[in-house]
Design a protein around this nucleic acid. Sequence first.
DNA 1: TACATTTGGCGAAACGGTTAGCTGGAAGAC
DNA 2: GTCTTCCAGCTAACCGTTTCGCCAAATGTA
Lengths: 343, 343
Amino acid sequence: MATIRDVAKTAGVSIATVSAVVNDSAYVSPELRRRVLAAIEELNYEPSTLARNLNSGKSQLIAIVVADLSNPFYSHVVCLAEAAAAAWDYSLVVFNSDEKTEAEKRIMSRIRMLSCDGVILVPVGETGQHLQRDHEGKSIPTVLFGRVFEDRRSDTVTIDNESAGRQATNYLLDLGHRRIGSITGPLHLTTGRGRHEGMMQALQARGVTPLQHHIRQGEFREEVAYAMAREILEQPDRPTAMYVANGVMALGLMRAIADLGLKCPDDISIASTDTINGISGMRPRLTRTEHPINEMINESFRMLLGRINTNPSQSPRNVVFQPKLVVGESCAPVAPALVTAAP
Amino acid sequence: MATIRDVAKTAGVSIATVSAVVNDSAYVSPELRRRVLAAIEELNYEPSTLARNLNSGKSQLIAIVVADLSNPFYSHVVCLAEAAAAAWDYSLVVFNSDEKTEAEKRIMSRIRMLSCDGVILVPVGETGQHLQRDHEGKSIPTVLFGRVFEDRRSDTVTIDNESAGRQATNYLLDLGHRRIGSITGPLHLTTGRGRHEGMMQALQARGVTPLQHHIRQGEFREEVAYAMAREILEQPDRPTAMYVANGVMALGLMRAIADLGLKCPDDISIASTDTINGISGMRPRLTRTEHPINEMINESFRMLLGRINTNPSQSPRNVVFQPKLVVGESCAPVAPALVTAAP
DNA sequence: TACATTTGGCGAAACGGTTAGCTGGAAGAC
DNA sequence: GTCTTCCAGCTAACCGTTTCGCCAAATGTA
């Protein structure tokens, strides 16, 4: 591979001049410019990004760390992030922490070594302690995506999880359901806890007390939700409706329903939160609250680029988006007999 | 950020010694090693990959370019590739060419600029002409994934597409179906063409001639398949079974079936090719031929690492994997009346 | 003509590592 | 006691850029 020195020698100029031509960073006389361009053409020179990055300290790399890459929700996030990165002339490095704290640590160290210019992080765990890099030296601009920590010292982009839980639950309540069950996400995550609390608020506001054995704490995984769903649905007084904390869990629930010979929405209504792609062909369509993922990703990039290019040390911003209820066919009004049985 | 020089100063040794400790590349006395490690700990030093890469010429980056990142099949591929990269101590840079040739060109140029050590490429288009970088200077080790070109000058990892089409079609034939329709992939892609030809071979072997208007050339996209499916199914003599060329197309077909008030598999059987994740909750489960994606990705990495570390100039290898038929519930034996109507 | 000012182009110092090759003191051979 | 041998650890060159500071030529001014 030709280097800038080769070009300089061929063109009979200094390397500084070649650099000036390549980057348009200083005036170069037409004659020299012509010779430099000719030499570049002849030698098929391309500046080495590696070397360029070394002294700029920038890498044109944005890292995204998701908590579960096999979750279609995060696949979608990555897809949108790739598009955003490309639009801003960055490349996207993808990492999967797989909900493991040590993996996340390894990844963050790797990201630092790669000198990524920014990080979009869906953090594992309830505190950001293991991520702190405050000890001197500026840390890499980071946006916490979806999940946050109590101490809001980082930029964050999230949705209003309580609102999501409330909206979905209210929809079920409006259909007359009173025996509403739920498979929650992990309650140590703001996503899991927020959605659960939103649901409880909605129930309480209507004076409905849920049955303990209709509510199970799960994980954001299909098989776990499937198992929980079976436990709940195999009870004699199974709920007439379920709220599940995310998309893949809803799939697990639907699978359980099918395997138990039940029908959705005839026997049981389902509402969930978050969007998953590629199941548009599925019937019944899920009634769910959707995240505006696209805007969330764009906002994340805006924050990151702001810190990278403009103002690295402005105080943290926390942007919260509102989820939107999208009605599918997975919910039906409660059967009359059960309505009368309600308190 | 602490540099190797800071560490050397703090530990009271030379930078060469620090480097030796960090890389275990030379013997260092226990005493000095201890001091160096202490200094590293104290300063929280991490070697800069950027600087390290500059003189090694390597970047510890593997790029993956897929043709459609919104397709769950490729999301799955990316997920597995991320795991493989992490296992081999590489980071994965993800690109989406979105089936556009110019986008792919831009991406390949970007990959070269980033000095990625290897590329896994799902190429767009029928020839690799726009990718050739043969003009002097070694090109980046590249594995063509899934799709290939006629002139096998690159390493490739693919499946036997004809076998996939044949297996799926034979399964439908075995169930008694004779009026078999199909939505093919783009026929200029080896994946689309191969699967289609496999289907035709299977039909011909049993003396079945498909009806022209039961076969449509589509794209590997849900909406396109949906539209094609409606066209085919709204005809009076609609087929009793369909073979579709990939997973998202199968979803489009199922959506069309549902929207037309038909039932799968009662009214129409479906068989498809390729695996898509995250729809395990869907009923009926698709009968399909699955790719061994995991092994395919691992094989790709083995090839890449072979070229990177060992033998950059060995002759191209073309590894073909066999798809495997996985029976779901989307196919039923043809109704007796129709069986007798068959030739 | 003499001097001040501008500016195109150059040399050299970073950036943060790796590594070839040198140095000097200790140990072993005679 | 002197000469080798050995090797831990150091010095310095190098990877391919960008960029600061400088020089000399060109231009402007009196």
